[in-house]
Design a protein around this nucleic acid. Structure first.
Lengths: 364, 364
DNA sequence: AAAATTTAGCAACAGCGTTGCGTAATAGGG
DNA sequence: CCCTATTACGCAACGCTGTTGCTAAATTTT
């Protein structure tokens, strides 16, 4: 967790991040666009643009002649000026993506991981995969780091994997530290679902409201974007949404409680009733809406994406029924726009965010 | 919603708010205390303290002679330099409190409201109550405003009551506007539970982590403190936690779904089984923990506070059982430290926060 | 060709935290 | 009694931020 004191360097980072967010979501933009979006004065925007241009992050791309008056200079993000690699570590696979400064996914590879893989085996797989990727476009000096989205529980602030569910060799592994040493790159570690929701927020820009990413993939998890930032909770353990009870008298779950969303959903799947499984998930999603009042719900996960329309329809129907009752609520439900890459891409974007996103300003 | 651009005035407000938070949580403090708590340089802290002293918000309170060296100047908040009045509007009662800059509740009054009261009736009750309170200590010039914590749904940003549950005359009432006109005071409107969690956060200071306030009072609601700020959701409708399904095959709830926490809890109460009702609530609380990973859970509400120990025991037991399974999670469960005043007090603190709290810095 | 309109940017400015360094106030030792 | 070490405080200069005032440039309209 980067601690930033509230000094002028924070102002610089903050306003630069605002302009970068505009550049990421609009293909091209001009000074007036930024003025409108941020409330800064035109002169201040000019200064920010000058700084970003010096750093090679944006460049001018012609002028716009709308009618009367001096033409406005049009700018664009230099997407290929910075890259990050994102990794999605699942139980049996390692997915790697290469993401540029604009959030575009350039390469995506999946390779199997050994059953019950060890930290060393993961590092080797990462090493091979990253070398292959870095070789493609000659990224020397433009690669900002590696983001890892992984099964929890883990400790995001300290880069520790506490006890990854279902993996025997992952107790209190200082993954960030050993990966940085082994790979020679800055490494950022986060829960898979939190990385995923970051990807969705990146693609939607600063106007993205409170949102959740629902991931069904050997378990059910949720990633949250609340108040303009990822919500990780007190111990980086937010999102164990599959282990919320929806049936007080339901079957016993592996977590020890009865009638968790995950076990009820699982039984429906085993019974072959995908439609019912989807409706159960939808009940859980509406529970989230009641609790958190979200503007967006994004669905993803390998298991869910095997029946995308069934799940999308069930969740949309349940959410809309709920909104109808209230009369004025509105929540958009969608499948992940990045498909199966969403976790890995989000992990990469978190790395880019550390450099070009809103600086953290933790009130101690 | 106050929009603040990231200019130097933000820095001033931010760092002043940090110092004020220190002053609120520590009875006395000195320069080195703030340096340690904020990471600012001693010189910067001196400047902030000078500004706050000029405004009459803090003052020196002697010196500390710990041993060798020049004595350190000790400061304290001037608690009686600013006040705010907080109102808790419930279905049948209006509670008013007077809160000073340190967060201390000075007066607390409860008066009945007519059944199905109208906006005019509420305004009259507010007017009478505020006059009585303002007369007590001659608050001329020191009263910063009125905060109202009320049943939802409402629109916090625009000060509208959309459709207060169970009150017929409250559809799209511009309460903030008409109250400001009627009372001649700045007015801040928020959901009751959100005001409540603000009070808890105030009393605990800047180190207060992610938290929820659970309120059982003719319904079950939740207020959330996430990432150092109140979480209101996309439509100020977060916290309808009583309307999350915990029993898929349960009885039909007024909200139209089946097996909501609220209806299951209500049935247990009606059957006279308080202990079971408390355990049902505890299931809901653990659901929240799984979803949001909270550091604190605070219990309040008129109905809950009729059996405080029963609820506290049940929730504590459930939370601790959950933590034991994980092995490294920890969540503190407590009854509201302000008792029945918590909602009104929090509403008042929100008013003070607008002046002396962390300035908002909404991206876009 | 002149006027109107829109955009861009130079220059001076106020205000923030930071840095460098001098000063005040105390305790302890010779 | 004096000197030194120690701790706390603050003036002054500085670098940097966004802001303000104003001028210049580039275009269309009259």
């Amino acid at each position: 967790m980067t601690r930033v004191t509230a000094d002028v360097s924070f102002l610089r980072g903050y306003n630069e991040a605002l302009v970068m967010a505009v550049g990421r979501t609009a293909r091209t933009f001009e000074r007036s666009t930024v003025v409108e979006a941020t409330g800064l004065t035109p002169q201040a925007v000019s200064k920010v643009i000058a700084r970003l241009t010096t750093d090679g992050l944006i460049r001018s791309a012609g002028v716009r002649r709308p009618g009367i008056g001096k033409p406005a200079v049009v700018y664009e993000l230099v997407a290929d000026s910075r890259y990050a690699i994102g990794a999605h570590v699942a139980r049996r696979t390692l997915r790697l993506v290469l993401v540029d400064l604009a959030g575009t996914v350039h390469h995506s590879t999946v390779r199997p991981l050994p059953r019950d893989f060890t930290p060393e085996q993961l590092l080797d797989a990462l090493s091979v995969g990253i070398d292959a990727m870095a070789g493609i476009g000659d990224l020397r000096g433009r690669l900002t780091g590696l983001g890892i989205g992984m099964i929890g529980p883990l400790d995001h602030a300290n880069g520790l994997v506490r006890d990854a569910h279902g993996l025997r060799h992952w107790h209190d592994v200082a993954l960030r530290e050993i990966a940085e040493k082994h790979l020679g790159l800055p490494v950022h570690l986060d829960k898979d679902v939190t990385a995923g929701i970051t990807a969705e927020a990146w693609r939607h820009g600063a106007t993205f409201g409170d949102a959740a990413l629902i991931m069904v993939e050997s378990g059910i998890g949720g990633g949250f974007w609340l108040g303009g930032a990822a919500h990780r909770g007190a111990h980086t353990n937010a999102g164990e949404f599959g282990h919320t009870v929806v049936d007080l008298n339901g079957p016993r779950c592996v977590c020890g409680r009865h009638g968790c969303l995950e076990i009820v959903h699982h039984h429906a799947i085993e019974a072959g009733d995908i439609a019912y499984a989807a409706r159960v998930l939808a009940v859980g999603v509406v529970n989230l809406l009641q609790t958190l009042d979200l503007a967006h719900v994004v669905l993803t996960g390998a298991d869910l994406l095997q029946h995308p329309q069934t799940y999308l329809a069930a969740v949309t129907e349940a959410v809309e029924a709920d909104a109808r009752r209230a009369g004025w609520l509105s929540t958009r439900v969608a499948l992940s726009s990045l498909g199966a890459d969403v976790i890995a891409a989000g992990a990469a974007m978190q790395v880019l965010d550390q450099h070009y996103g809103i600086p953290e300003l933790a009130p101690i």
